[in-house]
Simulated assay, not measured.
Amino acid sequence: MTTETTQVYRVWIKASPERIWAAITDPEWTSRYAYASPADYELKPGGSYRSMATQEMKDFAKANGFEVPDVIVDGEVIEADPPRRLVQTWRMLMDPGTAAEPFTTLTYEIEEAKMQPGVHKLTVTHELTGAPQTAAMVAGTEDDGAGGGWAWILSDLKTLVETGSSLAGR
């Protein structure tokens, strides 16, 4: 598993930049793909960001002898330029190891794809300096129980935006 200090992920999506932006920032969308965690953004510099635990996450944790906090990821908006660019800090609070690490920086960039009209490239850059546990978690792998990380999240976001249904059928 990679624990690089900068991880970059790209996906091409056949949708408008406004629709992709909504899928990233609107809790109605974020609760429908990947880990189904509703995201709450205050889309202005200095604004807050929170991603909330679902009841399914809480039930799973309880059944396995641990607890998950209500807020599983938090941060602050650094830059918001809808529907093209979002820069924020990001800290995973789901376990004590990642919660103890410093905030990382996450950048979303939505650009028109040169190869095909109506297709947009979404690039996610995650700066993870000083956060090796978070880096391992977001790199993801199904093999070690870490989940799919950013690759899974972006694959599911793309599927939902293009088809109206997530990989899990939400």
Rank of each mutant, 00 (worst) to 15 (best):
M1K: 15
T2P: 15
T2F: 03
T5C: 12
T6D: 02
Q7L: 09
V8A: 01
V11L: 09
V11M: 02
S16Y: 05
P17K: 12
R19D: 00
I20L: 06
I24N: 00
S31F: 00
R32M: 08
Y33R: 11
A34G: 07
A39N: 13
Y41F: 14
E42W: 01
E42F: 08
G46C: 08
G46L: 05
G46T: 04
E56K: 13
K58R: 14
K62Q: 10
A63Y: 03
G65T: 04
F66T: 07
E67S: 12
P69W: 01
I72Q: 02
V73E: 06
D74W: 06
I78K: 07
I78L: 10
A80S: 09
D81P: 05
P83Q: 02
R85H: 10
V87R: 14
T89I: 03
W90T: 09
R91T: 05
L93M: 08
M94K: 10
D95Q: 14
G97R: 14
A99F: 03
A100H: 06
E101N: 03
P102A: 00
F103M: 14
T105S: 03
L106W: 00
Y108W: 07
E109C: 08
M115R: 15
K121I: 14
E127N: 11
G130T: 13
A131W: 04
A131L: 09
P132K: 03
T134G: 04
A139P: 10
A139L: 06
G140V: 05
G140K: 13
G140C: 08
T141L: 09
T141S: 14
D144I: 15
G145F: 06
A146K: 15
G148M: 08
G149D: 01
W152S: 13
S155L: 12
L157M: 14
L157F: 06
E162N: 12
E162Q: 13
T163H: 09
S165M: 13
L167Y: 01
A168Y: 02
R170P: 12
